[in-house]
Amino acid sequence: MTSLTPCARARTLPEPAAMLRLIKPVTWFPPMWAFLCGAVSSGVALGPEWPIVLLGILLAGPITCGMSQAANDWCDRHVDAINEPNRPIPSGRIPGRWGLWIAQAMSVLSLAIGWQFGPWGFGATVLAVMGAWAYSVEPIRLKRSGIWGPGLVGICYEGLPWFTGAAILVSGAPGWDIVIIATLYALGAHGIMTLNDFKALEGDKVMGINSLPVTLGPERAARVACWVMIVPQLAVVGLIWSWDRPVFALAIAALILAQLAAMRVMLRDPKAKAPWYNGTGVVLYISGMMVASFALRGLA
């Protein structure tokens, strides 16, 4: 087992700035956006419900997603001590078992807030918390798999927040059309997470993380990721068209065409261009999510 730095043994209380870095604010946006998509798709007027919508956004982003980041960093602390010793835990700015305690406390906080949202909202929160720990903790550690790891993250980042946002607003189970669209976008997010794995390609090879870029190679993994992103969106277009919402279907189709153009650029050099695509093509993807949510809102 790798020893942490001397600073890790010297400090007794965590550094406030390091605590913020531990829960990684940059990762909060996807679940917050998905929750908002779910709220919009419910068809409920958002104006009178803004306090509960705001609380739900905080639950999806800073609290539950932040908890998942803390749990992941705690479970990866010995790996990070080798590869990224400046991270909050191996650097000692989060000393002792504080990383674990923060993750556990935020798990409890997530469940406590989720309880306020009724059985469906609470159930979705329970699944999100369980998923966060299953991704990182031994012996489950689904992040080792290039199939189950990105799939779980896609569900927890896109599908569950969307479902939760709709369930909270309708005070019950969302309609089957909302569940189908949320599921399709969660499946497509598997491809986004695969492209995100490119940044850790070398480290994953050393540490035995069998991401798709490791097992298939960058070129094949990038093509698989593109197919995984596009096919569910095509299904969304077909469904929304069949539900007599052609303008929304055409708007999503236009966003898909723009993604295909960005994919052509990315596929020329997947290893170098995957981060670029995450800053361009993913924006088009999540824009389609919001268009779909407004189409569902019209149906509601």
Rank of each mutant, 00 (worst) to 15 (best):
L127H: 08
W101T: 01
P119G: 10
S107T: 09
A103P: 10
A112R: 02
P90G: 09
A81R: 06
R93F: 04
V126K: 15
A128L: 11
G96A: 03
I102V: 15
I89E: 02
A103S: 15
G99A: 05
F117D: 07
W98G: 01
F117P: 01
P90V: 09
S110H: 14
R87F: 12
V126N: 14
N86M: 11
G118N: 05
L109Y: 12
L109N: 14
I102T: 10
L111Q: 13
P85A: 07
R93I: 03
R93M: 12
E84I: 09
W98N: 05
W101C: 05
S107K: 11
I82C: 03
W98S: 04
S91R: 14
S110D: 11
F117V: 07
F117H: 02
G92T: 11
S91Q: 14
I94R: 00
N86S: 14
I94Y: 01
E84N: 10
S110N: 10
I113Q: 01
G96S: 12
R87T: 09
L111C: 15
A103K: 08
I94H: 03
R93C: 07
I94G: 00
L127Q: 10
W98R: 01
V126L: 15
P90N: 07
T125F: 07
I113N: 01
P85L: 04
G114M: 06
A112F: 06
A81D: 12
S110G: 09
T125H: 12
P95N: 06
I94C: 00
S107V: 03
I102F: 12
P95C: 09
G123T: 02
V108P: 08
L109S: 13
M106T: 03
S107P: 10
S91P: 15
R97K: 13
I113F: 00
V108H: 09
I113Y: 01
W120A: 15
A81N: 06
N83H: 12
G96L: 01
E84R: 11
E84L: 05
Q116H: 09
T125A: 13
N86V: 11
I113L: 03
P95V: 08
P88I: 04
G96V: 02
P88D: 07
A105S: 13
L100Y: 00
W115H: 02
A124I: 14
